[in-house]
Design a protein around this nucleic acid. Structure first.
Lengths: 246, 246
DNA sequence: CGTATTATTGACCACTCTCAAAAAACGTGG
DNA sequence: CCACGTTTTTTGAGAGTGGTCAATAATACG
């Protein structure tokens, strides 16, 4: 209910050392502030606050006045929309380096919730908007990230509207693997930080169907499921083929 | 195959008169160039070309190098993605004032096709990017429109993943009515410019299901279908209720 | 270690899809 | 303007994918 308890305010932060683009996270090119000059990063640092939240905490709700923008430092966040009767659609999982919280007409268009314990960079919206005026590179980066977000939303529409349950689950696993790779974590074993219920609400399926498809993949030796928190990619190429409707 | 035959190059246009924001279209606040100063509009005009295309012409294809951005002056455009076996998902219909063609890494992320005969403003990407440097208002508007586009993509994900056929069709009709209203066309009769097949591919349904739901709505006196190109909203409130899952 | 939560598995069902045919709308040329 | 063929839409019957409901198993947690 009070998700801002853990905020460490960095309003008086002293900026970043030379090696890392920003000392708040070690994400390299993935970071929100990637590509900025030292000076610009310093200015960005001067307005941000860092937050730590436990799993399942709500960061903001759909319709709340959009006072902050966020970027993920560590952990996983889910964004979702609800129908009045409780049906839920998760529109995106956010991983380290992703940003979220762009408002539509002053309010958030979706609810954001921590899937795992998370570290967030929190930018006051007004201050960030002021900074955008002065740092055009930052606005460019924001636009670029928003375009990328839009493109992946379009991919997800194709998935939701036209793929079978099998194809949906395969696509999800491929997406997870790619996101993991991008963060430098290679190897066949992937952490599966979200529940079956979250996967189902992301893919437009029920938890039963997700479970059935996963065990089917396991029986076909396409994946391994050592425990609830991990997937082992045994035949990633086959999985990719299934995902594309082969 | 050669969709650029109709281009009227405006590279030597002389700018806009005072009354209209831009003399290429009469869209008022809806227009892409809305909110710009006369001088900025003149600069924008100097790089744009105007295109007229007949219905069913392809504007660009997924994967094509993104050389231009477009904004709709008149008519309807559909954006879609395909699976290898031909399954199609229409991610958006674009109406007057909407812009499209933002590239992801140099190429278009989707195919764009004229639904009706259309008038388009065409902005060379390189020149527009140059202009963005000089006109920060333009970049702001681009970001704002992209955020709005992302928000409606998220609505569509909720629709595709969690709504029933009845709710989907109702939502679609409500969306059409709202888009029509925004353009100043009020009244219960709406033009239905797209085919059943397009509606189906937009809603993640088959044409048969779309047809069945529409006739069902007609039997329940929620809508009227005077001809294939029009819908009459008889009980818009009931329709809205159905759309939200009531 | 016991309880609550989450995931799996099974049986059954329904919504939507598929396939097929009829009807309507459209386009074309005489 | 009408007859013709083509395309699109509607309607129908049947089937299948994924959903619902329920029970069991596994996991997490105090």
């Amino acid at each position: 209910m009070a998700p801002y308890d853990h905020i460490i305010d960095r309003d008086k932060a002293e900026g970043c050392p030379a090696a890392q683009p920003c000392d708040h996270c070690d994400l390299g090119d993935l970071a929100f502030c990637s590509g900025l000059t030292q000076g610009d990063i310093r200015r960005l640092s001067s307005i941000l606050g860092q937050t730590h939240l436990p799993a399942h905490d709500t960061i903001f709700r759909e319709g709340d006045p959009a006072l902050h923008l966020y970027s993920v430092g560590a952990g996983t966040v889910k964004l979702y929309k609800l129908l009045s009767d409780g049906r839920r659609q998760i529109t995106a999982f956010m991983f380290p380096g992703d940003f979220f919280g762009l408002p539509l007409g002053g309010g958030y268009a979706y609810t954001a919730e921590a899937v795992t314990p998370v570290t967030l960079c929190r930018f006051p919206r007004r201050k960030l908007e002021g900074l955008l005026e002065e740092v055009p590179t930052l606005e460019k980066r924001l636009l670029k990230l928003t375009i990328a977000e839009l493109a992946s939303a379009q991919d997800q529409m194709l998935l939701l509207g036209r793929k079978t349950a099998r194809e949906k689950v395969a696509s999800f696993l491929i997406m997870l693997a790619e996101r993991c790779e991008k963060r430098g974590r290679t190897g066949p074993s992937l952490p599966l930080s979200m529940s079956r219920s979250d996967i189902a609400d992301y893919l437009g399926l029920t938890i039963e169907t997700v479970s059935r498809v996963l065990t089917q993949f396991k029986k076909e030796n396409i994946i391994g499921l050592p425990d609830l928190g991990h997937v082992v990619m045994r035949q990633p190429e086959l999985l990719r083929q299934i995902a594309e409707g082969g």
